[in-house]
Simulated assay, not measured.
Amino acid sequence: MKILLVITGGTIGSTTTNSTIDVDNESSDRLLKMYKDTYGENTDFTVIQPVNLLSENSSFESLNVLCNIMLSIDYDSYDGVIVTHGSDTLSYTSSLLGMLLAFVKKPIVIIAANYPIDDKRSNGLINLHSAVAVITSKKANGVFTVFGYENEHTVYLSTRICEADPYCDRFSAFGGAPLGYTANDKFIINNNKISPTIQELNNKNERLFDTIKLHNSIMLIRPYPNMDYNAVDLSRKPAAILHYLYHSGTACTTGGTKNFLEFAKLCNDKGIPLYIGSCKHGDIGYITAKEMEKLKVQKLYNISMESAYMKLCLAYNQSCISPCELMSKNLFFEYLP
């Protein structure tokens, strides 16, 4: 079994010195030695390290390096690819790679760790082992994210993993249902109404990009009580704005400078595309949501904040198709049914 291991840093690629965690240039050698000592020599790993940083320091510059490396890989030379990553921005990079690499007919698995691997509390080795199981099972192609807890070895669709809870460091699945899990070195896919089937995962997807260069900024806004839109600086004119909504698909529609409707009109006057999500389908809805329907904004339905943001980053940093056309495509199951 030949697997390409793409090292990018993060906690899984760090060590602790004087109570401080930081990335370590020898992390890949240590990770593979510990893996082989624990699980044996049955897997042939090839290692590359395009970037080496803590994921909270992720930027368009580092994402461009990683994405273009991933786009240049000869996937026919490997049974699968594993990307090690930091946990802080794991859900963002996972979403981006899922939509960018949906055309690849091999499993790509992104993993992270809760502690450096030389810490006994770390789940890094377990996550690596689960990622290998996803690949060796040869069940499904696509981009997946693995992050386990004790006896839980959860596999997420890369476009549906949501940022971890800051208290217990647990990730969750947008829509409430992870894709599956690993057990006894097998990849088991959950049977539920919102997850794609194995056949759907293995369907052929078109390749949209040969290279990518992220440079145009997207502004991300989340609502909160008493939010004052006068504090939002539009002077640098972002390429687009994603205004994520409360879970009911709503935002404040009263209160002058706290009124989303007035902010939307301002964006329209300034020629800044405004996207809102995650919106809800249905015949009934809150009056605040119905007031928003009258606006000249782009509505995104049933999509996580991370996937909506990273998809807009793709849409407004390419010239293959119009941003609106790209946003309308379901690139890798980022839109739930």
Rank of each mutant, 00 (worst) to 15 (best):
A164W: 08
A164S: 11
C168F: 07
F171M: 07
F171H: 06
F171V: 04
F171I: 07
G175L: 11
P178H: 09
T182H: 13
T182Y: 15
A183Q: 15
N184D: 15
D185E: 15
K186Q: 14
N190P: 01
N190L: 14
N191M: 11
S195L: 06
T197G: 12
Q199P: 00
N202S: 04
R207V: 05
R207Y: 07
L208F: 15
L208H: 11
L208K: 13
T211K: 15
T211H: 12
K213L: 11
L214H: 04
M219K: 12
I221G: 04
I221S: 10
P225V: 11
M227E: 13
V232L: 13
D233H: 12
P238Y: 00
L242M: 12
H243E: 06
Y244Q: 06
H247T: 02
G249P: 06
G249M: 01
T250E: 01
T250S: 01
T253M: 02
T253F: 02
T254H: 10
T254M: 11
T254A: 05
G255R: 12
G256N: 14
T257Q: 06
K258C: 14
N259H: 07
L261S: 08
L261F: 09
A264P: 05
C267G: 02
C267T: 05
I272V: 01
P273L: 01
C279M: 09
K280S: 07
H281L: 01
H281Q: 01
H281K: 07
G282M: 07
G282F: 02
G285P: 01
T288R: 02
T288E: 08
A289L: 00
